[in-house]
């Protein structure tokens, strides 16, 4: 659940930030760059704790804001999606740049507006190139969701830890099961990513 919600927000953020970094206005480019570098430069665990512990304190200190009560779920979603949004925006940016210049030129020759060129010609091609990397990031994100157990959210890891604490002698089994569980969720993602990779490389060849 956390994975799906965060992935959803992460990809939206990534596309916006990816476009932002290519924007004409220097102002927009700079803001998105700072966002991306900040979230790529600091660790996800740190961000998670910062959002969960420090952010509510910051909000409390600002007088006009209503008290910010972040559940651990939303703290997790915010941290994970902002973090991965920053990483994936790099993919978005490079894939947009990787679309052949001739495609831009043909679209200009057909007198499309900037917006139309992006929407009708560039993005549909760029998204195809992005798919394998989206898949890889989804697997990374799956692994990262285990970190939210550290701020007390009941995910697979947290549940496993709770179970272990009441059945100490089953320790090996519990941890092995947890690993297998994550692997089982990852398997279809791995498979899809491989397929996307093959599809893209085939598309390039033709």
């Amino acid at each position: 659940m956390l994975l799906i919600t965060s992935a959803f927000f992460a990809f939206i953020i990534a596309i916006i930030a990816g476009l932002g970094r290519l924007a004409k206005s220097r102002w927009i480019r700079w803001t998105t760059n700072i966002y991306v570098e900040f979230f790529r430069g600091t660790s996800l665990v740190v961000q998670l704790f910062w959002v969960y512990y420090a952010l509510p304190m910051l909000a409390k200190a600002i007088p006009f804001l209503p008290p910010l009560n972040l559940s651990s779920f939303w703290a997790g979603v915010i941290a994970v999606s902002l973090n991965y949004g920053a990483y994936v925006s790099e993919t978005v940016r490079s894939c947009i740049l990787a679309v052949d210049r001739g495609q831009h030129e043909a679209a200009i020759a057909l007198n499309m507006t900037r917006f139309q060129r992006m929407r009708l010609v560039i993005l549909p091609q760029a998204v195809r190139m992005m798919l394998p990397d989206f898949g890889n990031n989804l697997i990374q994100m799956l692994k990262s969701t285990s970190l939210v157990s550290l701020i007390g959210l009941t995910d697979i890891t947290y549940a496993g830890m709770v179970f272990r604490n009441s059945n100490i002698d089953l320790g090996i089994l519990v941890f092995a099961m947890m690993l297998v569980f994550y692997f089982l969720i990852a398997l279809p993602l791995i498979w899809l990513t491989r397929r996307a990779e093959r599809a893209v490389s085939k598309g390039m060849a033709s």
């Binding site: 697997i139 799956l142 692994k143 990262s144 969701t145 285990s146 970190l147 157990s149 550290l150 890891t157 496993g160 830890m161 272990r164 320790g171 090996i172 519990v174 941890f175 092995a176 947890m178 690993l179 994550y182 692997f183 990852a186 398997l187 993602l189 791995i190």
Partner: peptide, 18 residues
């Protein structure tokens, strides 16, 4: 593939506790 696609956090737990 197994090691790569499972969370390092859980692997740490496994090493430390199990």
């Amino acid at each position: 593939e197994f090691i790569r696609s499972t969370p390092p956090l859980v692997q740490l737990y496994f090493l430390f506790y199990a």
